[in-house]
Write a protein that binds this DNA or RNA. Structure first.
Length: 687
DNA sequence: CAGTGAGCGAGCTTCCGCTTGACTT
């Protein structure tokens, strides 16, 4: 084959192959094909931070295939993703093909190919896989952008140096096996600091007073208004006594509508999904973890049903927009089609936009049809439906709402009160028709109240007064969705890493999930405090943003990567040495329980082993007693009536098992039906 | 989708970012 094209993913290779025809062989690199060695630093600090790249074991086969194909090709087209990492992959491929050997880790097995035998290597860049874009790219190839490659090398080396220097320091000063890094340590810090806010929070009491009012001349025309002002001043009610006094005054007041204002409000659809937003929405609407969302999306992608699921772009190809507009016009109705297509801008400054937004590849294919397809589960259908609706909605007309505010005047013995009621009515549903009612956070600010028709000076009668006690609430703990959102806002992490970050901080026992919320462990708190004390700049929320600015300068040729890393490294190394020599070992708050050791009578404490949490005697090493932690779930074993407890597989997946194991073998992935403990004296069930 | 368990307290850990298969020395 004369022409060899290399892309990153096999799915993309297939699609590209179709467009390019038989004269091109299209192969996939499967992501990066060279990297720093895992077992050591792999960066020569003394010699300008020279990285030592090797071919990881699991990539060797792939690399040999690619090299073999390149050996007989006349032209090699590097069509990796159009971003920093893609440029680096292209460069590594070029190095491998032109270099001849197996890479820096092995002795060169043969001499580099003679220049005359090398294929012509060209870089092609396209942002959508359409015939036009591909043709254009192959007509205007370019050389590899070495400045962009340098920015990637700077990023890679910085992350390696930070991670591989800080982690061993933690082994020495906190506990062995721990890890720290530019991304995971900040994610952890967010959770730790939020927990501190929650713990330090002092709830403050306040009250509100609501009035149920009825238009005097009409029946069933009642509505609820909230007290907001007294004698021209904003009402603040600190306690029940004051609320009672005000209620007393309002009880005897006369009520009248003082103004009715209706304004038209337009609501615009949200942009199509990116990795971050699909993870957030699938979490809130479907209860999926980020990991699960990515697994399900991967299958949809491989089946050709959706575009690539790791993206930070909200852009849609012109073809896709055309197809969606067609569909709206023909299937939804002309009224729902805006005069011109909607374009969305990616807000994130660090976005690299190598791929389109996540959308169905064919908008005409509904989720109903997916159900008929082989191997599609309920989860596939539900995620596809979400993607489908969001993509459709983003090109539909805006919704029009009438938002009405009614002010009510109440008077009693010269005291004047102002109450307010608001409500909205959908005049035209627009995109809400496709992507309406859901548990989306941005939609919950509305009061679902239907206001009756009211006019200024209408007299009102009071049906009921409702003083309500409230307390101020602490900021909410992070869950997967809100953590990903926050990380993206800070420009930390990439579409391919949001889900792995969440796994890492849990795998290290830095945080635990309780009812879907993250809570830091004493270990996570100790690590964060250590890093905050000695390396505040690394866990600074702006560290990554500043790094990105410098990487941009490197990519623009305004700066070189090695001096940039050196500038960071010199003070960093000094601090490393200082801390390594002088810092005390961190004390991790031990989690001592009330449980007593049956062997020696001392208390038991929580420990973290390779199989997870367990209880061990505080008398260790004199007393070696351990027991597993049982999480009771208020359920009974259907086989023997024993108590059901949560267990974990070796891989860490929880399941429900009988406490009488190994005598009773009952086990289930789902919780057995709750049984009232009073009624479990006899196994009344059949059998 | 398919998948279910008794030990952890020693010895060699770790980063971020790109992408999917999967032998073995």
């Amino acid at each position: 084959m004369q022409n060899l094209v290399i892309v990153e993913s096999p799915t993309k290779a297939r699609t590209l192959g179709k467009f390019l025809g038989g004269k091109y062989q299209v192969e996939a690199s499967m992501g990066h094909i060279r990297d720093l060695p895992k077992s050591e630093l792999g960066v020569d600090i003394e010699h300008h931070f020279t990285p030592r790249y090797i071919i990881p074991r699991d990539k060797l086969k792939k690399v040999n295939e690619l090299k073999k194909a390149a050996a007989s090709a006349k032209n090699l087209w590097l069509a990796t993703d159009p971003d920093r990492e893609g440029e680096a992959i292209a460069w590594h491929l070029q190095e491998l093909v032109a270099g001849g050997g197996l890479g820096a880790d092995k002795k060169k097995t043969r001499e580099p190919r003679a220049k005359s035998q090398l294929p012509t290597i060209r870089r092609v860049e396209f942002h959508e896989i359409t015939e036009g874009a591909i043709k254009e790219a192959f007509e205007h190839p370019r050389d590899i952008d070495l400045q962009l490659v340098d920015a990637q090398q700077g990023r890679r080396v910085l992350d390696r140096v930070v991670g591989y220097k800080l982690s061993p320091l933690l082994w020495k000063k906190v506990k062995s096996g721990l890890s720290a890094g530019r991304v995971q340590s900040v994610a952890l810090r967010l959770i730790v600091e939020r927990e501190r806010e929650v713990q330090a929070f002092n709830p403050i009491e306040f009250w509100s007073v609501e009035a149920n009012l009825e238009a005097a001349e009409r029946k069933n025309a009642n509505f609820v208004a909230t007290l907001i002002e007294q004698d021209g001043k904003k009402v603040e009610i600190p306690n029940g006594e004051v609320a009672g006094e005000i209620t007393k005054q309002l009880q005897a007041a006369t009520y009248k509508v003082s103004s009715v204002n209706t304004r038209e409000v337009r609501k615009y659809p949200a942009p199509p999904f990116t990795t971050s937003t699909i993870q957030q929405t699938a979490s809130s609407r479907l209860g999926f973890s980020a990991k699960k969302t990515m697994m399900v999306a991967q299958t949809l992608y491989e089946r050709g049903l959706i575009t690539y699921m790791r993206t930070d772009s909200v852009n849609l190809s012109t073809q896709a927009v055309g197809a969606i507009r067609n569909y709206i016009e023909q299937q939804v109705g002309k009224a729902y089609l805006p005069g011109s297509p909607r374009f969305y801008k990616t807000k994130s400054k660090v976005a690299q936009e190598a791929h389109e937004a996540v959308r169905p590849t064919d908008i005409r294919l509904g989720s109903e049809q997916l159900k008929m397809m082989d191997g599609m589960t309920r989860d596939h259908v539900r995620l596809y439906e979400l993607i489908w609706k969001r993509a459709l909605a983003c090109q539909m007309s805006e919704a029009v709402l009438n938002q009405t505010t009614v002010d009510v005047k109440a008077e009693n013995n010269g005291s004047k009160f102002l109450l307010r009621a608001s409500g909205s009515v959908i005049k035209f549903d627009g995109w809400l028709k496709a992507y309406g009612k859901g548990a989306d956070e941005e939609e919950k600010d509305e009061k679902g109240q239907h206001l009756p028709v009211l006019n200024t000076d209408d007299r009102l009668s009071l049906l009921q007064l409702m003083p309500v006690q409230h307390f101020t609430e602490p900021p909410p703990r992070y869950n997967e969705a809100s953590l990903i959102k926050k990380l993206e806002e800070l420009g930390i992490g990439r579409p391919s890493t949001y889900a792995p970050i969440i796994s890492t901080i849990q795998d290290r026992y830095y945080v635990e999930k309780m009812e879907k919320k993250f809570i830091p462990t004493p270990l996570g708190i100790a690590v964060t405090d250590f890093l905050l004390q000695y390396f505040p700049d690394i866990v600074d929320y702006d560290f990554t943003a500043r790094m990105e600015d410098e990487l941009d300068e490197i990519a623009r040729g305004e700066r070189r990567w090695q001096p940039t890393i050196e500038e960071f490294y010199t003070p960093f190394e000094k601090k490393l040495n200082e801390v390594s020599e002088n810092a005390e070992k961190m004390q991790i708050a031990s989690e001592v329980t009330d449980k007593v050791c049956p062997k020696c009578g001392k208390n038991l404490q929580v420990k973290y082993g390779k199989f997870g949490k367990f209880l061990a005697c505080t008398g260790f090493p004199e007393c070696k007693y351990t027991e597993s932690i049982e999480e009771k779930v208020n359920a009974r074993c259907p086989d023997c009536g024993g108590e059901i407890v949560v267990r974990r597989t070796k891989k860490g997946r929880p399941f429900y098992g009988c406490k009488n194991w190994p005598k009773c073998k009952y086990a289930s992935w789902t919780k057995p039906k709750k049984v009232n403990s009073e009624q479990t004296t006899v196994n009344s069930d059949k059998r």
